[in-house]
Write a protein that binds this DNA or RNA. Sequence first.
DNA 1: GGGGGAAGGACCA
DNA 2: TTCCTGGTCCTTCCCCC
Length: 948
Amino acid sequence: METGGTSSSGEGFLSRMALNDNKAGMEGLDRDKINKIIMKSSKGSRFYENEMKKEQQVNQRIERMMLQKSHITEQQLSKAQTQVEKMTFDLDRVRDLSRVIVHVDMDAFYAAVETRDCPDLKDKPMAVGSMSMLTTSNYHARKFGVRAAMPGFIAKKLCPNLVIVPTNFDKYREVSAEIREIFADYDPHFLPMSLDEAYLDISEHLEQRRGWPEVLRTHRLRTNDTGTATSVSVLVEEQGDGLQETVEGLSPVLFEDSPSSSCPFLQDAPGGGAGGDVVVFGTCAEEAVREMRFRIEQKTSLTASAGIAPNMMLAKVCSDKNKPNGQYRLPSNRQAVMVFIQDLPVRKVSGIGKVTEKMLGALGITSCVHLGQEMALLALLFSETSWHHFLDISLGLGSTHIERDGERKSMSTERTFGEMSALEEQFSLCRQLCQDLAQDLQKEALKGKTVTLKLKNVNFEVKTRAWTLPCAVATTDELFAVAKDLLKTEIDNVSPQPLRLRLMGVRVSSFVSVDDKKPLQKSIVGFLQQGGADSSSPSQISSHKPVKEHQPKPPGQTQPFPCPSLVQQSQGQEDHPWVPSWGGVEVGRTGEQQQSFFQRARAQRLRLQAEREDPPEDGKWNVLETRLGPASSATKPKQTQTPVQKNPNTSAETHFSMSALTASDNMTHASTANSTEAHVSTSLCWSTELGTDSLTCPVCFREVHTTDLTVFNRHVDQCLSGLPMEHNIHTDTELEIGSSVCEEEVEIEKEIAEGERRREEGVMKKGRDPLSRCMLDSLGLRLDSSAGDHKGLLLYETSTTNISLNAVGLNPVCLNTCPNGGVAIPRGTDPNILKGSSQSDPRVCPLSPGRPRPMTTPKVESHDAREPALTCPVCQVTQDTDNLTLFNQHVDLCLNQEVLHELEGLASVDRTTHDEKLAAHKGQCFRDVLFNDLSHITCHYGASCADR
DNA sequence: GGGGGAAGGACCA
DNA sequence: TTCCTGGTCCTTCCCCC
């Protein structure tokens, strides 16, 4: 078949942009004339330039292929031929011709619906879509070369009288639902491919149908207002197994010459078509399909075409054979299939697009018969997957089993727009997309681990950037936390030039296993964010099973952020949906917002999980700083301690440095001294105060008498690190004081490193984990020597029980003896936050001195790890297992129940009172704010930290 | 060398 | 002036084990 792909490169235009007339109603057009108009309209545009680039890439691919072909020896070819023949024999032997598969496709669906609802359009060339893009066109328009996937403005040049009707998907969905009701009568498990198309396996229906009395195959003809019948269906007798081709009347909606009332067979309908009022259909496959199409037409006034064949691939091709308003049956025998395949152009086969067509064309393959002849060559030039597919096609093989309820692999949303360069707009859109996607995910109760950002710049170059997390995410904030970092990376990559976008999309994939698809548990974080954008959204912190997953390394320089933050945004961002959260306070026109301790702790947990799966190369566990990946130079992330740069596109009021966007990720980062480490500073840039001689620290709320943003940022870093009040720095000269804390951290790190080293050497004993000791020491707490081999985790945050205890490295032995009697704080937690309590009694919450621990998890009275039975510390029921994994799962479940219970209790928290108390804390140190924040959780126990 | 993630692209409706 | 959207699958490259 002569196609635009194989012959037009020398004709002065791009073959990939040439008219694709591989569509019903487009036969016999003046392709040259149409192509000239298309090229004239497109040439010089960015789109055209990009298409040219793509065309060159395909040409290069073909060149490489041809080069490869020239090196193939006779021996190789002969060997491949043997392989192909063997495989052909095997495939033929198991060929399944027993099923009757039907592919039904509505004729020019959207256009037909619009024409039905507006009969004036019937005689006019029309298309559905916009000046930017058409989704479909009617058959009048196709005569001008106007087709789906063509920009409206080009279509207008081809056909100046073209009427373009905007899409109305709600309407199409309604009609689609009506059609699907009919499909279900023939195959309750039919497979819808889109609103207007479906595959059905009618084998079972046909078996039943053979025994049906005539009355069950009789359908009444709907009449219009004038009493004339509207059907255009044709009835035919069964004709054995020969090829049957039946072209019928055209759609009454689409075509003027619809032979509706004059249809002769209605009077002479075989099998008892009674007086033109009713139609009786036969029992064979064709009759069943005809009946289906008849009913569709009677119900919707729209026509459908259908293909009947022994497999899906052939059925699809057959449905196109007699379009519109026709059907074609390919008999179920090998000979008929092979005859049918012989002259079939490869492009007609679903799965072979313009690129594959062009590549095959370069090898002289245009029809399926060539495909079979050159299979040995194809086996040497294409991947196994590809040539196996080609072999199937050449033999007329396809799927005979309609895959029902196929599992969704990904979900995404994307938007195309005019050029967008302003950062605020980009981040705002990014958040909007995340929000839309989160809603969609919620509808299907899905959560995924891979978040992908798709960007198309004004030159039509598409980039995708993905990040895979250790646990599944689904909420707006979680998605945005990742997406915004990916976006920021791309912005940085082109900086100082703006990122000029025309499309942005967000996708989630790597959905968690079916077991985890149960309705998502509401987390406390989500709960506390009532009033936020998706307060009802479930949170996806939960990961019952310990995640055993390889944490990918950043893909080279293009991935400056190995683990995008998962720090939640707080509420109150309506004015600036993209405004980042950082350090517990958010700044912007929306004012100051508190970020909960749990949000930060959660980010730490995620980091901890990541580290547990993939320890840093140097073998050290980061306790005090946010590690952003291996420190190897090849993958070392960018330093993003960005100085404030006034963006000319944004007002001073709304401008934020990009560094602020990631500040929240690094809440616990305490060391600003170690500049050689790959980390992101918690620098904050607060341009609302640019131009004044002092800046107010959003952590301690004090004025810092400096206009040097570097100095100011360092101050904020220090505050965020949780330094005691007396060490806070409020002038330029005082800044250096903070370094003493860094030394302390270095000491702790050293000890951790030593401990890890010793552990690796096998000299460590249970309960002597240096990290635990270090943490405890730093807290002034004592480690119970019987605590078992918990990995340095001291616990007190109770609300995160939807993180598996396993995931944070705590086993039931630890649970039993852990001074907190319950839940872990990941080891990444900043000890400085905990220090202030200076508690020596491990049974007392360090955050709430003098108060009982908030965690009410009952302790196990006695336990011996050697005993086969373990008693659940939550429900107190002895479990009939000695398998710790199973036991842990049970404890997880119990704890989750507890959390749900707690959530109910939380609902009664008096937030107003709390907020008032919080306001009173202004001016106090950040640690106080954190403690106060915790009162959100604890006050329902009657032990609010704020009361102290 | 195999497995798996990331990125890009082909293809479809 | 103006060229979509949402999804799946495949290929290639690269890193890690």
